[in-house]
Design a protein around this nucleic acid. Structure first.
Length: 578
RNA sequence: GCCCACAUAGCUCAGUAGGUAGAGCACGUUCUUGGUAAGAACGGGGUCAUCAGUUCGAAUCUGAUUGUGGGCUCCA
């Protein structure tokens, strides 16, 4: 354990030291460079600079060369403690460093130098620059000073740094592997979806094969919700602006809303959320405590304005369909409902093969709706629910939304990248604004407890996620084409079509390759489309009345009967396995 | 939205001293009827993102716009 900590801090020192070396290299090329900060990060480091001209990728080789010289010179890193005045004097022409110094309360400040280069720094560092064994500058990017969009934009250079060349190469390979799984690339290769310049950025069109996957997920989702006594509803895409003024969305989320449209002299808004319609349905008549909890669920399509720079394939878009639900219950039922939502959430993400996840409980922020007591009770209830489900979680203090505490679940995909998954939010605000109540045993109206929750997030983002998670090799139950039927020659077409029909009768997605190419070529085509099951049918199979199977993995099951194949496939589909 | 880069055929990409576009794959036709990851020939297909400008002449140079990518910020 201690060794692990030592190793981590050593790697951190390597990365941080490399950042200093890069800062010296950049300073020597641009004597007027103003330095921002340069920390170690996962896999490497970055350093922010204010430079007289924009950097281009062509600048990186020169910086790299300079860095190699500095490393070769093997300059020792020397730490010194200096007084505040000395520091202010030392960095008098480095405005960003001065700002940092002024942010530090201590009277004694730590600096590190190697050769003539000095930086304000807590350390630790390597003994000398020569200890840096493997680094690679990767990208240049803009970054706001202190990460605040109102500050000036600095130029950031990102780099990788590892203890050895081998580890660096391994990491580079891993990044290449991730690029192969990028849902934008696979989305094109597998013909799953597209976004059109003509139509607008962030607006996704689902192609037939992508739509099959989505529909399969939706069917699964609906079945699960039916079983768990949710009521699935449908609501319109626009509603009067006034409704969003009442809810507070118009004030709080204006930046994310599209401009209102005028219909019959009345302003309407494209809906950014489904909750208000769900409240309308709840409020359509008086509700008794006897019918609670009411769980309204909808695959609801919403539209939000997202800044152009944040759009990303299918995972960050402007129109998307949430797997949304609003649960209306009594406060005494909150715990049980939360437990049930957690149960559903865990079941769904496990079904898609996600095993690792992190759970966060976000508590009251500075600005909030409701009372202290409501927050305290609801937060405790969420905690209790997590404990009942035996789910490890971290508390994220002050990170709750203004209207209530929430649970966020992030899960890791096959490449160990985290995706935002299920969220469960308690809402104190909307029930109050829309007077959402129920009649209790006492005949009095009581405020309802309202939970917003999604499990998959949005169909678009979830599709991006599973595409990358499976690397495009979707498990049989999700695969757009489950079986590619490959006749060896034209005379085997009739048999191939009969087999296709047998599979279709069982709702298996089978397609005959009727092209006149060779068997090899047909197999290659199916392999590239990542079709899980290929049937090769020729004279032998017709004579025996069987099929020969080539699985996507390359494994073979020759000469099996159609009944046996059906059983294998239908079992795989119903078990939702690969 | 901000910083930087990029934008050529459906896809992946060539095309630098500015002289009206090319490959592979895919697609179509024909030949081939093949046994587990590319059979062959021929063919169709591009106002080189859009709009201006410089020039006798622009895919190529300049500017603007749109879109995309990597970041920042943000987020389902």
């Amino acid at each position: 354990m201690n060794q692990e900590i030592d190793k981590n801090s050593e790697i951190e020192a390597i990365r941080h030291s490399t950042a200093h070396v890069m800062a010296e290299a950049v300073s020597s090329i641009f004597p007027d460079a103003k330095l921002g900060i340069g920390p170690a990060i996962e896999n490497g480091f970055y350093y922010d600079f204010d430079l007289p001209r924009p950097l281009t990728p062509d600048d990186l080789p020169a910086i790299t060369t300079k860095m190699k010289e500095i490393i070769k010179a093997n300059k020792p890193f020397i730490q010194k403690n200096i007084s505040r005045e000395q520091a202010l004097d030392l960095f008098h022409d480095q405005p960003y460093k001065l700002e940092l110094i002024n942010d530090i309360p201590d009277e004694t400040l730590s600096i590190y130098s190697h050769g003539n280069f000095v930086d304000l720094c807590r350390g630790p560092h390597l003994p000398s620059t020569g200890k840096i064994k493997a680094f690679k500058l990767t990208t240049i990017a803009g970054a706001y000073w202190k990460g605040c969009e109102h500050n000036s934009m600095l130029q950031r250079i990102y780099g990788l740094a590892f203890p050895s060349r081998l580890e660096l190469e391994e990491y580079v390979k891993k990044v290449e592997e991730a690029a192969k799984r990028d849902h934008r690339k696979l989305g094109k290769d597998l013909d799953l979806y597209s976004i059109y310049d003509e139509a607008g950025p962030g607006l996704v069109c689902w192609h037939p094969d992508g739509a099959v996957i989505r529909r399969t997920i939706e069917d699964f989702w609906k079945r699960e919700h039916d079983m768990r006594r949710y009521s699935i509803i449908y609501t319109p895409h626009i509603a009067k602006l006034n409704m969003w003024k009442t809810s507070g969305h118009w004030d709080f989320y204006r930046d994310y809303l599209y401009s209102p449209m005028v219909i019959d002299e009345e302003e309407y808004l494209l809906k950014p959320m489904n909750c208000l319609y769900h409240i309308l349905i709840y409020n359509s008549r008086k509700r008794s405590y006897r019918e609670l909890p009411l769980r309204f669920a909808e695959l609801g399509t919403v539209y939000r304005y997202e800044p152009s720079g944040t759009l990303h394939g299918m995972s960050r878009v402007r129109g998307f369909t949430q797997d949304d639900s609003h649960i209306f219950c009594r406060y005494s039922q909150l715990e049980k409902e939360t437990v049930q939502v957690l149960d559903l959430a865990m079941y769904m993400i496990n079904t898609f093969g996600f095993e690792k996840y992190q759970v966060k409980l976000s508590t009251r922020p500075e600005k909030f709706a409701g009372s202290d007591e409501m927050w305290q009770n609801a937060t405790d209830t969420l905690k209790k629910a997590l404990e009942i489900k035996n789910i490890a979680y971290e508390v994220d203090p002050g990170e709750g939304v203004f209207y209530g505490p929430k649970i966020d679940i992030k899960f890791e995909d096959a490449m160990n990248r985290a995706w935002q998954g299920p969220t469960i939010q308690v809402d104190f605000n909307l029930p109050q604004r829309f007077n959402v109540t129920y009649t209790g045993e006492d005949g009095q109206e009581h405020p309802v407890a309202m939970i917003h929750r999604t499990v998959l997030g949005s169909m678009e983002r979830f599709m991006a996620c599973i595409t990358e998670h499976y690397g495009g090799s979707f498990p049989v139950w999700l695969a757009p084409v489950q079986v590619q039927v490959i006749p060896v020659a034209d005379r085997h077409l009739d048999y191939a079509k009969k087999i296709e029909a047998d599979l279709r009768k069982e709702l298996l997605r089978a397609i005959v390759d009727t092209s006149s190419s060779t068997v090899n070529h047909k197999i290659r085509g199916a392999q590239m489309k990542k079709v899980p099951c290929m049937l090769i049918l020729g004279d032998k199979e017709i004579a025996a009345g069987t099929v020969s199977v080539r699985w996507r993995s390359g494994e073979q099951d020759n000469n099996i009967t159609i009944d046996k194949l059906l059983k294998i496939l239908l079992d795989t589909v119903s078990q939702q396995t690969s």
